[in-house]
Simulated assay, not measured.
Amino acid sequence: MGKLKGILVLVLVVAVIGAGALFYIKKDVIFGPKAEKAITAEELAELSIDTDVITTNLASASNFAIVQFNILLSSEEAKEETEKRTPEVRAAIISTIAGLSKEQLVGGEGIALLEKELSTKLSKIVETGKVERVLVTEFKVQ
């Protein structure tokens, strides 16, 4: 009878420890991921870069675009690297826009497509951090 009690207590302790470990590992699934703190306006200004106004031809005949972007980076080091890589950033912007037609760029979906494609391209250029987002701040298509 004493051995049975000992085994039962041991099984119960192992089950409680296992359940606690499982809860600790899966708490993000149960409670959702931790909320990230909101970025302040000062941090936003410190970690973002505004490109020059860029004018380039579009893929569609006799159309061109005038654009400017705000690029938010993950760290000060990433911002410094991106500033040093300005020619590569401009080339990525121009090649992306030149590959799109006027019809692809018109409307909210067009701007969202451009921001997403540029974010992907610029993420390949920046090595010390990551591109958090790209925003179109000036946009004219003719």
Score class of each variant (00 low, 15 high):
Leu44Tyr: 15
Val29Ser: 12
Glu36Arg: 10
Tyr24Gln: 14
Asp28Ala: 08
Gln68Trp: 04
Gly32Lys: 01
Thr40Met: 03
Ala61Met: 11
Thr56Phe: 02
Ser60Phe: 09
Asp50Leu: 11
Ser75Pro: 03
Ala21Tyr: 11
Pro33Met: 08
Ala35Arg: 09
Lys26Pro: 02
Thr56His: 05
Lys37Met: 01
Leu47Ser: 10
Leu73Thr: 10
Thr51Leu: 11
Val67Gln: 02
Val53Lys: 02
Ser75Leu: 01
Glu43Asn: 06
Val67Ser: 04
Thr56Lys: 00
Glu46Cys: 03
Asp50Cys: 02
Ile66Met: 03
Glu46Trp: 02
Leu73Ser: 01
Asp28Trp: 01
Tyr24Arg: 13
Pro33Gly: 14
Thr55Ser: 14
Ile39Asn: 05
Asp52Trp: 04
Ser74Trp: 00
Asp52Arg: 13
Gly32Phe: 04
Ala61Glu: 15
Leu72Met: 08
Ala35Leu: 11
Asn70Lys: 13
Ala21Thr: 15
Ser62Gln: 09
Phe69Gly: 07
Ile39Ala: 09
Glu42Val: 15
Leu72Asp: 07
Leu22Ser: 15
Phe64Gly: 00
Phe31Gln: 08
Lys27Gly: 04
Ala45Pro: 05
Ile54Trp: 07
Glu36Ser: 07
Ser62Asp: 14
Phe64Trp: 03
Ala45Thr: 15
Ser74Lys: 05
Asp52Cys: 03
Ser60Met: 06
Tyr24Ser: 12
Gly20Lys: 02
Asn57Lys: 05
Ala35Val: 15
Lys26Gln: 14
Lys26Ser: 09
Lys34Cys: 00
Glu36Ala: 10
Glu43Thr: 11
Asn70Leu: 12
Ser48Ala: 10
Phe69Arg: 00
Ile25Leu: 08
Ala41Pro: 06
Ile30Cys: 07
Pro33Asp: 09
Glu43Ile: 04
Glu76Tyr: 10
Asp52Glu: 14
Gly32Leu: 08
Glu46His: 07
Lys37Arg: 10
Asn63Glu: 12
Ser60Thr: 12
Asn57Cys: 03
Ala45Leu: 11
Glu76Val: 14
Ala45Gln: 13
Ser60Gly: 02
Val67Gly: 02
